[in-house]
Nucleic acid binder design. Structure first.
Lengths: 244, 244
DNA sequence: ACACCAGTTTGGTCTAGACCACTTTCAAAA
DNA sequence: TTTTGAAAGTGGTCTAGACCAAACTGGTGT
C-alpha cells in the first residue's frame, strides 16, 4: 500500500502524514496500535525520521503515545471538552458542537493603557482597537471578552463585521496575520456586577479569567485579550508533557 | 571551542545539549541570539539534527524561538510566575523562591469512588490511598489538595512522612514511579466553607480548582489530584504553540 | 509446567550529508 | 546616491542509513 503525498514542497511531508494519520485515528482505522514507524515510512515512501516528526506532532497533542520496544498507540482516554488548543472562541465552540455568536458591545480606537502596552510591545502614545464582546454558545452567554489589537497593524479593522466572523479569520484573510503561539494566564475571580449581568449570573459568582497574548510566527504580538468565562459552563483542559 | 558531553549512552546527547543551553541562557551568556544550529553542531561535535532536537525542547517551553532565515533567539518576555510545567507543588513553590510545606489532614486507605476509578483506570472494589493536605508557601496557606493513588502500586506508602517530603520524590525514589505527562482541567469555583476555613479566606471566595491526572512513561495513571488554590495568591500560566 | 535464552520487532538516538526558502549583506551597476 | 543582484548565512525539511535498549516471541532444556 502506497499513500499519495503532495511533493511540490508547499506542505511539508511530515505535516501531510500527521494529518492523514489524524484522520485515520479519528475514524478508528487503527483499533489501538498504529503501524510501526518503519512500516509507516515504507507505506508513505519517506524516511523514518520524517515519520517520527509526524508522530511527534500527534504525541504532543496527547493523541498518541509510544512505548519503547512495543509500539505506538492511540490514546483512548476521552479528552474532556474545552481542550485548549490554539483556537479562537468560535473554533473552540464549533469543535464542541455548539453554535458560536457574538454581541459586540464596544468597538473603538483608543490609547493603549500600560498593561496593554506591555503585552503588545507598544510605545507610549500608541493606539489600539478595543473590542468588547459577549460570547454566546447556542445563544447562551458563555463569556465576556475584552480584546486589544495594535491599531497600526490592522488599519480599517473597524470596517469588518465581527458579529458573524471569527476575529482570527478576519486577521488572517485580510491582514495575513496568523496566530502561531500564545501565552495564557488563568485565574479564578468573582464576577463584577456589570459583567455578571451580561453573563446572566449573580454578582460575585465565580468566573474563570483567561488573559491571553497571541503572537505571529515572527514573534509579533497581535492581540491581548481578557476572557471571562462562566465557571458553571466552562472548564479549560490542558495536556502537559515532561519531555519534548 | 569544544564542549564536553557524556557519550556513555546514559543521557541522550540532545538532553545534555538542551540542559547546557538552558544554563547558558539563564546566565545571559547569549545576549539575545543563540549561535546558529550549524555552529552549535560543530561546538558540541554532534550532528545538526541532534542540535535541532535539543533546541526543539527549549522551543516547546517557550524559552527560545526561531526565525526562518535569521536565527534562534532567547524569549526575553518575562514569563509570569506560576508557569505550569510538569512539577509538583513543592518544586513549583521552590522555583518561585517560596518555602513549601504541608499539613497532612487525612491519610488513609479507602475504596475508590467512581470518578477516581475512571481517572486511575481501576476496577470496582479497588483501593486507593487518600491524602488530604493543606499546602503552604512560606507558612501561608496556598492550596488545599486531595490526592488519590492506586494502593496496589504503592504498598506501605503510609510509612512515609509526607509532611516534609515531596510526594513525587517518594514515589520516584521508593517505587521507581516517575511522572511523565498529565492531564489538567482548570475551573473556577466558590470555596466551600470547610475548605475556605483551611485556606483562610471567607466562604464563597473564588478559588482555582485544578484536577490533575498524572501518568508514567508507560501510560500508567499514578495519581488523581484536586488542588484548590486561593485565587488571590495563585495564577496558572501556560504556553500554547500551534505547531510542534 | 516452567525457566531460560536467542532471535525479532519496536521505538530512541544519532550521523553526515543534501536541497530549499528566506533574510541579510554588501559590492557593483545605474 | 540609490538600486540591484549575487553571495553568504540561517532555519526547515528530508534522506538512507546505523546502533542501542527494551520488549516480545518461540523454542529448548530442565
Amino acid at each position: 500500500m502506497q499513500e499519495t503525498l503532495t511533493r511540490d514542497g508547499t506542505v511539508p511531508l511530515h505535516t501531510q502524514i500527521a494529518e492523514a494519520l489524524r484522520v485515520q485515528i479519528q475514524n478508528d482505522q487503527f483499533k489501538e496500535n498504529l503501524p510501526s514507524e518503519r512500516e509507516l515510512a515504507e507505506r508513505y515512501a519517506v524516511s523514518r525520521m520524517t515519520v517520527r516528526q509526524a508522530l511527534q506532532k500527534l504525541r504532543l497533542e496527547g493523541l498518541i503515545y509510544n512505548e519503547r520496544g512495543v509500539g505506538t498507540f492511540v490514546n483512548n482516554r476521552k479528552i474532556d471538552v474545552h481542550t485548549r488548543n490554539l483556537n479562537g472562541f468560535s473554533e473552540e465552540m464549533i469543535s464542541l458542537g455548539l453554535r458560536p455568536s457574538s454581541l459586540v458591545l464596544t468597538f473603538r480606537r483608543e490609547l493603549a493603557g500600560p498593561d496593554v502596552m506591555r503585552d503588545l510591545g507598544l510605545g507610549a502614545g500608541a493606539e489600539v482597537f478595543y473590542l468588547e464582546r459577549l460570547r454566546l454558545a447556542d445563544d447562551e452567554p458563555m463569556a465576556f471578552e475584552k480584546t486589544y489589537l495594535p491599531a497600526y497593524l490592522f488599519p480599517k479593522l473597524d470596517k469588518f463585521d465581527l458579529t458573524k466572523n471569527s476575529l482570527y479569520r478576519v486577521l488572517g484573510e485580510n491582514y495575513d496575520s496568523r496566530m502561531h503561539h500564545a501565552e495564557e494566564v488563568l485565574e479564578a475571580a468573582a464576577a463584577p456586577k456589570r459583567i455578571a449581568e451580561q453573563l446572566g449570573v449573580r454578582g460575585g459568582a465565580p468566573v474563570l479569567v483567561v488573559h491571553r497574548v497571541v503572537f505571529t510566527e515572527s514573534h509579533q504580538p497581535i492581540e491581548s485579550a481578557h476572557t471571562i468565562y462562566r465557571a458553571d459552563r466552562y472548564r479549560a483542559t490542558f495536556y502537559l508533557s515532561k519531555n519534548a
